[in-house]
């Protein structure tokens, strides 16, 4: 019994030559079937003679080669970010056991970004201007302001303190960047994909020694359907530290 490998475009490798004439020319043609992918003199000619632009980042001003401490704002496409995030959510969703688990996973992915991005933001502030925030309110203002600006391009919309619980604070964003195009289906309950952003905040806060749990909650208002409240719950020990230090 012969073990010929069945190639999709020809019965065997030897029949696939450069002088094969495809009736339809270049590219896959569903009406012809798999044979349309074979190489012809016409298509090889096109491929060999066509002027091309190299997409490999070799030039010095490519985004990959820029100095990390550069203060110049680097922009990336919102579309590619959205598609990537879309796939992140899909992938986490596939692996998760439920809605709660999905949020935890997104939070975990964001957490690592937060830890790293805190370092980068501090580096970009410069050695002279940069200082370490040691009070809760200061670190929150930093997250709400310059940290948010460096990662999402603008400051968050609001920073609030809970009136009932002393260790709860809220950062409010009217249109979170990552979930701008996402609508949560009704059967997903109160899932909020900005859990990813909550993870970023949590990572940054933890890294700055402000241990906290951060969760994202949708609180839509008129005109801002994806308005999100990031609830920051600091650990009790932190409140003790704060009162010891500053009375």
């Amino acid at each position: 019994m012969s073990d010929d490998i069945i190639l999709p475009s020809a019965t065997s490798m030897s029949t696939l030559t450069i002088s094969d004439v495809s009736r339809t020319g270049f590219g896959y043609n569903p009406s012809v079937g798999t044979a349309s992918n074979s190489i012809t003199s016409e298509t090889s000619n096109i491929l060999l003679n066509r002027k091309t632009i190299s997409l490999t980042p070799t030039s010095a001003n490519s985004i990959y080669d820029k100095n990390v401490s550069s203060k110049k704002i680097t922009e990336i496409s919102l579309s590619s970010l959205s598609f990537l995030f879309c796939e992140i959510v899909n992938w986490s969703h596939k692996n998760s056991k439920g809605i709660q688990d999905l949020e935890t996973r997104l939070n975990g992915l964001g957490y690592q970004i937060g830890q790293r991005f805190l370092e980068l933001t501090k580096l970009r502030e410069g050695f002279k201007n940069s200082k370490r925030e040691i009070r809760i309110i200061e670190v929150l203002q930093f997250i709400h302001g310059s940290f948010w600006k460096s990662i999402f391009g603008r400051a968050a919309n609001d920073l609030e303190k809970s009136q009932d619980v002393s260790n709860e604070y809220m950062i409010i964003d009217n249109a979170p960047l990552v979930s701008r195009f996402i609508s949560i289906p009704k059967d997903y309950g109160n899932l909020n994909c900005s859990a990813f952003m909550a993870g970023i905040i949590e990572g940054a806060l933890d890294s700055a020694s402000f241990q906290a749990d951060v969760t994202a909650h949708s609180v839509p208002v008129d005109g801002y359907p994806s308005r999100t409240v990031f609830l920051i719950k600091f650990h009790e020990s932190l409140m003790v530290r704060e009162s010891l230090r500053f009375g």
């Binding site: 879309c86 195009f181 996402i182 609508s183």
Partner: peptide, 23 residues
């Protein structure tokens, strides 16, 4: 392209239920 294609809860060729798209 924005509100349907970039929604992770939309599966291709299925009915569109996104409320953001509606709005």
């Amino acid at each position: 392209s924005d509100y349907v294609m970039k929604d992770p809860f939309y599966s291709l060729d299925m009915p569109i239920k996104s409320f953001l798209f509606d709005t």
